[in-house]
């Protein structure tokens, strides 16, 4: 959160916002937002990417709409308006998935409607889209959704490979590999995410120490 506030203060350009979403301000690893979806649907790559796509669609649409009507917003009603906008697009995404990817929508189940309360989207609407012109808001949304999808994919890759020895349903580890079933079960999500998060922090601190010495 502090980073976000700091970011607001020196007003980055559109390109900067786009890049910031991908790694430096990654919504999952840095801001710890939208963890429900991140943990719940990352037991295989396919569902993780579908979820990433759905979130990207909702995020971009909601950001653009919010940005278009930013001058009409009343401060005390804005959160309600954001939520209703998001809920509309989530309904569209949900119906679309149910129509064209029925099996996947069954697998994802309640986690598609739960995008409504995904903090990433409301946070981007509040922090960026309600104050910036359309192009900036859209770039920000695209950057953030790429960051989100990357984070989901990294988690899903670890969990699917270690848990089933497969990647995208294709076998990558030898058949003799003893499947770590725990990885595709709920505890595996917590453990993998905790370890990845710690590792990322560690790499960061190493880099910071390295640049400090110079």
């Amino acid at each position: 959160m502090e980073r976000t506030i700091k970011k607001m203060a020196d007003q980055p350009t559109t390109t900067e916002r786009f890049i910031q979403g991908i790694l430096p301000e990654n919504p999952v690893y840095r801001q710890l937002l939208g963890l429900c979806a991140t943990l719940a649907v990352t037991n295989n790559m396919k569902s993780a990417l579908t979820m990433g796509g759905a979130v990207a669609f909702v995020l971009v649409c909601a950001n653009v709409i919010t940005s278009l009507m930013r001058n009409l917003l009343k401060p005390h009603l804005r959160i309600v308006i954001f939520t209703l906008t998001i809920a509309t697009f989530v309904t569209i995404a949900d119906r679309f998935l149910a129509a064209y990817m029925y099996q996947m929508s069954k697998t994802l189940g309640p986690y598609i409607p739960l995008i409504i309360v995904n903090c990433i989207i409301i946070c981007r609407c509040e922090v960026c889209a309600s104050k910036q012109p359309v192009i900036t808001a859209a770039a920000d949304a695209v950057g953030q959704s790429i960051g989100f999808t990357l984070a989901m994919a990294s988690l899903a890759a670890v969990r699917e490979i270690l848990g089933t020895g497969m990647f995208f349903g294709l076998r990558v580890l030898p058949v003799a590999w003893p499947d770590w079933v725990i990885m595709v079960l709920p505890p595996g999500a917590f453990l993998t995410f905790g370890i990845l998060l710690g590792t990322l922090n560690w790499i960061d601190s190493l880099r910071a120490a390295g640049s400090g010495k110079k």
Binding site: F190, L191, G194, L197, N201
Partner: peptide
């Protein structure tokens, strides 16, 4: 990070 691992 440690919270999540403990949660696991």
């Amino acid at each position: 990070a440690i919270t999540l691992i403990v949660g696991g």
